[in-house]
Every structure is written in structure tokens, then in C-alpha cells.
């Protein structure tokens, strides 16, 4: 049975119209005027136990609203959610025991106290038996390499160390599902790698179901075989990462800096998009190792000084998906700010 089952999920926010002037707050309180914002519209998906799923979309797409409903923080306007067989917002406290959550931007650790104090409190809050606690902590200490800063106050930790501590704490009560909201945001490459490695490990070895929101497609590629893409409140893609690539075409842009201007060159598998003499940008589908082939071929003829591969942004992928599905692609600026408002007055 699926551990997360979502059917026809909708969430509308009512925004009360604020009144100005004397007793404005009082009038706002009794006012019936509001506007409706549809944050999530008819979303359905199901996640099996032990899956790792990336939940992506631009800002304001409804990502965190969905996560908040899955964790029981918000109540859906309509539709059904079952998490481990229970309705999250009706069984928030029971559900709390089987889910762990990491919010990249908000620490759940005690700022001025050693990391271990937060862990011990967590043990008591969740009533974890001493033996289980020691075993799980031992696992986390080893895989996340916590020992060097376990006794240090949280305020002295680097962001990477803090995130490792947050992950460990979220796992102490051995949750079945781990929710992660932007777990790698702001981290350097090394720290990101370490976090991704850890998430892969707990997903594969401990069978923890992972649901992850992110802006970084690399997070998805390295952790989650499956991807749910949401935009403007609706699911627009739900399949494997490999399938996404074959759908949108795995096009990448490579910028090559030659030692000297090679002039007009022949590019077998790609097209030249920008030509600035010694610096050329080439776009091509990367499906069969043709990058390396191209580079070695070029390097034999013209000395190359530097190569950089442009990361594909989620916004780019979404725009491509739009084009594929025959809809009009929104501007990238619209993706971030677009939201539906409908004024209602009664």
C-alpha cells in the first residue's frame, strides 16, 4: 500500500480584505469581504514506501502548501490525503511520530546550546527508548560525521554542519517519511554532496521514504529517481527523471574558451548559439557521451583553455515542458510571481 496517497487535493486561501482607518482591525475581523487564492488545484499522486520523490516547481507554485498539508500543518479545502493510512490534520500528533521534517531556512536546534542538548530533548519529546536512541544517534554520527561538533553550541556551527545536525535530529525518532524543504539551500558544493550522499544512504539502507522540495535539479538527479513537478498549483509532470530528460530533450549549453580563435569550426552533434571569437557557446543534446567525444575531438585540433557547462534551471525545464505540451510558456518572470486572484464579495 502506498504510504502517501493524495487524491483531488485543493487548497484555497481566503485573504480577508483589510480595512483602513479607525477600528480598521475590528472591521476586518467582522468583514465578509475576501479574495480567493488557489494555491493547489486538483493534485493527485501516490508514493510507495521507500521511494524518494523530488517535488519541484518555481516559487509560489504550491510546493510548500502541499508539504504543509501532507504534514498536517494545513487543512485541505477539499480532496483526500492519507499518510500511512491516516488523515494528517486529524491525527497530527500520531503522524508526528512517523514523520521527520527539515526546513532548510528554519533551524529546529537550540541556538545557544550544544547540539547534543537538542538531540537529548528530542529523545524525551518523542519518548525514544535509550537503546534505540543510542543506536540511531550512533548511525547518524558515523554517516554524517557529527562527532567533531556534537558538543559545540549551534551558533558556532557552519551552515553545512548545522544542516547535518538538523538531518540527524529529524531522524532520531526513526520516521518512516522524511520531509525536506530546500535542504541544500545556501550550502557549498562539498556540503551539498555530503547531504545528498546521506539522503541516498538512509533511503536505500533504512528504507526511509523521502519527499524533498528544491530549486536545485541536481538534488533530484542525485537523490530522487522520481520527480513531481508542480506549477501554478497543478501537477504538470510526474515520472522518472530519465523520462523528463527524454521528454524535454536533454539539451545543454557548453561554453568553450579556446586559446586562440579557431575561426569557423565544424560541430558534429550540436549547434553554435553564440560566437564571440575565442569563446563559443554550443548547444546540443547530451544523451550518449557526445560531450566528451566532442571535447576530445576539438581539443586535438584547437587547444582549449576552459570549458563550462551551464546548469539547466527548473524554470528552463518548465518552460520547455510547456512548449512540449502545447501550452503557452509563461515568461520566467511570470513564473515567480504569477498567482490567481479572484475577488469575491458577499
Amino acid at each position: 500500500m502506498a504510504i502517501v496517497e493524495v487524491t483531488g487535493l485543493n487548497k484555497e486561501f481566503r485573504r480577508n480584505r483589510r480595512h483602513q482607518g479607525a477600528f480598521g482591525a475590528v472591521r476586518t475581523l467582522f468583514s465578509r469581504e475576501y479574495s480567493i487564492h488557489r494555491a493547489v488545484q486538483d493534485v493527485s499522486f501516490s508514493i510507495e514506501e521507500g521511494e524518494a520523490v523530488g517535488y519541484v516547481g518555481p516559487n509560489g507554485a504550491g510546493k510548500s502548501t502541499t508539504i504543509k498539508m501532507l504534514t498536517g500543518i494545513l487543512v485541505p479545502t477539499s480532496g483526500d490525503i492519507l499518510v500511512d493510512g491516516r488523515v494528517p490534520h486529524e491525527h497530527r500528533q500520531e503522524n508526528a511520530r512517523i514523520l521527520g521534517a527539515v526546513f532548510g531556512q528554519r533551524s529546529q536546534l537550540w541556538w545557544d546550546l550544544p547540539v547534543i542538548d537538542s538531540f537529548e530533548l528530542h529523545q524525551h519529546v518523542y519518548g525514544i527508548a535509550d537503546g534505540d536512541y543510542r543506536r540511531t544517534l550512533g548511525f547518524c554520527r558515523e554517516v554524517l560525521q557529527l562527532d567533531s561538533f556534537l558538543q559545540a553550541p549551534v551558533r558556532q556551527l557552519s551552515l553545512g554542519q548545522r544542516m547535518r545536525a538538523e538531518m540527524a535530529m529529524a531522524l532520531l525518532h526513526e520516521p518512516k517519511i522524511l520531509f525536506l524543504d530546500e535542504p541544500t539551500i545556501g550550502l557549498d558544493v562539498l556540503a551539498k554532496d555530503r547531504i545528498r550522499e546521506f539522503l541516498r544512504t538512509i533511503n536505500r539502507e533504512r528504507n526511509v521514504t523521502i519527499i524533498l522540495t528544491t530549486h536545485d535539479l541536481k538534488d533530484i538527479e542525485e537523490i530522487c529517481p522520481r520527480l513531481i513537478m508542480i506549477n501554478q498549483g497543478t501537477v504538470m509532470f510526474d515520472n522518472t527523471v530519465a523520462h523528463l530528460k527524454s521528454t524535454v530533450g536533454d539539451e545543454r549549453e557548453i561554453k568553450i574558451e579556446f586559446a586562440t580563435d579557431p575561426g569557423a569550426i565544424e560541430i558534429p552533434a550540436g549547434t553554435l548559439v553564440r560566437d564571440a571569437g575565442a569563446s563559443k557557446t554550443i548547444r546540443f543534446a547530451q544523451d550518449n557521451g557526445s560531450v566528451m567525444a566532442l571535447l576530445s575531438e576539438l581539443d586535438g585540433r584547437y587547444p582549449i583553455r576552459d570549458v563550462s557547462i551551464e546548469e539547466v534551471s527548473i524554470e528552463d525545464v518548465i518552460r520547455k515542458l510547456y512548449i512540449q505540451t502545447g501550452q503557452n510558456a509563461p515568461d520566467s518572470s511570470e513564473i515567480d510571481t504569477w498567482s490567481r486572484h479572484r475577488a469575491v464579495t458577499r
Binding site: K68, T71, G72, I73, R92, Q93, E94, N95, A96, R97, L99, A101, F103, Q105, R106, Q108, V125, Y126, G127
Partner: peptide, 14 residues
């Protein structure tokens, strides 16, 4: 406003 209230809601107590 800061969203710090949300984690409070997913603790195993009221």
C-alpha cells in the same frame, strides 16, 4: 510570519 510556528504543529504533543 516567519514560519517558525509550523514545526510546532508537527510535534507529538499539542
Amino acid at each position: 510570519q516567519q514560519g517558525t510556528f509550523d514545526p510546532i504543529l508537527i510535534r507529538p504533543h499539542s
